[in-house]
Simulated assay, not measured.
Amino acid sequence: MRFSDYIVFVDESGDHGMDSIDDGYPLFVLSCCLISKRDYMSTVVPAMQQLKFSTFGHDAVILHEREIRKDLGPFSVLREPNRKQAFIQALTDVLDRTPMTVFSAVIDKRQLAEHRRREENPYELSLRFCLERIFYSLRRLGQTSDAEGPVLTHVLCESRGRNEDADLELAFRRICGGDNFGNIHLPFEPVLTDKKNNSIGLQLADLVARPIGLKQLRPSQSNRAWDVIERKLDRDPLGRYIGYGLKCFP
Rank of each mutant, 00 (worst) to 15 (best):
R2P: 15
D5K: 15
Y6K: 05
I7S: 15
V8G: 06
F9A: 07
F9T: 03
G14L: 06
H16A: 12
H16G: 04
S20W: 02
S20T: 08
Y25D: 13
Y25V: 00
P26K: 07
K37D: 09
R38T: 12
R38H: 10
T43C: 00
M48G: 02
Q50D: 11
L51P: 04
K52M: 07
K52A: 08
S54I: 00
F56G: 06
F56I: 07
A60H: 09
H64Y: 02
R66I: 05
R66M: 04
E67Q: 13
I68A: 03
K70V: 01
G73S: 10
P74V: 11
F75V: 00
V77T: 10
L78W: 04
L78A: 04
L78G: 02
Q89C: 04
A90D: 11
L95M: 10
L95W: 03
D96C: 08
D96Q: 14
P99L: 03
M100S: 09
M100T: 10
V102A: 03
S104E: 13
S104M: 06
V106L: 14
I107N: 03
L112S: 01
L112N: 00
R116S: 07
N121R: 05
P122Q: 15
Y123G: 12
S126M: 08
R128H: 05
R128A: 15
R133T: 14
I134T: 04
Y136Q: 07
S137E: 15
S137N: 08
L138K: 08
R140E: 13
G142P: 05
Q143R: 04
T144S: 11
D146C: 12
A147M: 08
E148W: 06
P150I: 01
T153Y: 03
T153K: 07
H154R: 09
V155A: 02
R162S: 10
R162K: 13
N163A: 15
D165R: 00
A166G: 01
D167C: 08
E169L: 02
R173H: 12
D179N: 11
N180W: 03
N183H: 15
N183Q: 15
I184T: 14
E189R: 14
P190G: 07
L192R: 06
K195M: 00
N197L: 10
S199G: 02
S199P: 02
S199E: 13
S199K: 02
S199V: 05
I200Q: 04
L202M: 08
L204Q: 05
L207F: 07
L207G: 01
A209H: 11
P211T: 13
P211S: 12
P211A: 12
I212K: 06
L214C: 03
Q216T: 05
L217D: 07
L217G: 06
P219F: 05
Q221T: 08
W226A: 03
W226V: 08
V228L: 01
V228T: 04
I229L: 07
I229R: 07
E230K: 14
K232G: 02
D234L: 11
R235Q: 15
P237N: 10
L238W: 08
R240V: 06
R240A: 11
Y241A: 09
G243H: 13
G245N: 12
G245Y: 08
C248T: 15
F249I: 08
P250K: 13
